[in-house]
Design a protein around this nucleic acid. Sequence first.
DNA 1: TTCTAGTTTAGAATCATTCTAATTTTCTTG
DNA 2: CAAGAAAATTAGAATGATTCTAAACTAGAA
Lengths: 143, 143
Amino acid sequence: MSEVQPKSILSEEAAMKLRAASLRPTRQRIAIAERLLDGRARHVSAEQLRDELVAYGQPMALATIYNCLHQFEEAGLLRPVHHAGDAVLYDTNLGDHHHFVDVETGELIDIDPGEILMPELPELPDGFEAESIELTVRLRRKS
Amino acid sequence: MSEVQPKSILSEEAAMKLRAASLRPTRQRIAIAERLLDGRARHVSAEQLRDELVAYGQPMALATIYNCLHQFEEAGLLRPVHHAGDAVLYDTNLGDHHHFVDVETGELIDIDPGEILMPELPELPDGFEAESIELTVRLRRKS
DNA sequence: TTCTAGTTTAGAATCATTCTAATTTTCTTG
DNA sequence: CAAGAAAATTAGAATGATTCTAAACTAGAA
Ligand SMILES: [Mn+2]
Ligand SMILES: [Mn+2]
Ligand SMILES: [Zn+2]
Ligand SMILES: [Zn+2]
């Protein structure tokens, strides 16, 4: 009943990325890394990720998913976006970019930074430094 | 024991704004309008507003506060900002402007649109129209 | 004054997220 | 390889913001 899966190339790659980030390559973290660190640009919520993991045959506790997302965030492997609706989305696109938000669905679409000429930083309040600038364009489906 | 407060000038003004927005000038809505529609630029959460109302001697059910904030929003009297931390903030500044966000506290500071040269809208995805553009500069207190 | 639609309300429900405390796993050391 | 310690996972409870429900109240019309 308890069979050990042969480690695929994919999971070896995922494990390497985890080790590089000083994260132990556990079964759960590998499964998440395989989905989210494969180089494709996506925006996923914890719930969406859980559904995917279930579909992929790697169900795990929601608490674990939250733990991993936070660890990946801290390691700079994912970027949280707190914009649309209720749930935080994790962005696998680490490059400088911006977002369209579909106000109906909360879905995000990347805006390539090349498509836009970002403004200079305004004068910052005293004692602060800028951590990030983000442009958000809220979209509504045409009548 | 049941005394009717004399209607102040302030509450008459608030009542007029409410009527103009087709909202019945109830005691609760007037109290909120007096705090939030006095022309000062602020960002308030439902909880903060409740505390203020308590301090002002006009406590009311939290559900009523949420109801009113939504009605004011729909009437275009307030603008919600979903950015910092968990709670939605309601912005009394209806003019075109942007925000600094203190990532520690979640506090918002207005960026005057004059201080910044906003970029052109990027090419929108097909079938959508832009509802708003917003620039957010996340700030962290210097070491 | 009466009536009715619109409002307010307390409290329950919901939903995303975090916490807790117990169990399991990883990985080092012998 | 065997132990043991530290780290990770887990189920389920807790939290906090917000929404819902259904009953009690009130504003404004007649
Ligand atoms: Mn948020
Ligand atoms: Mn939000
Ligand atoms: Zn993105
Ligand atoms: Zn503002």
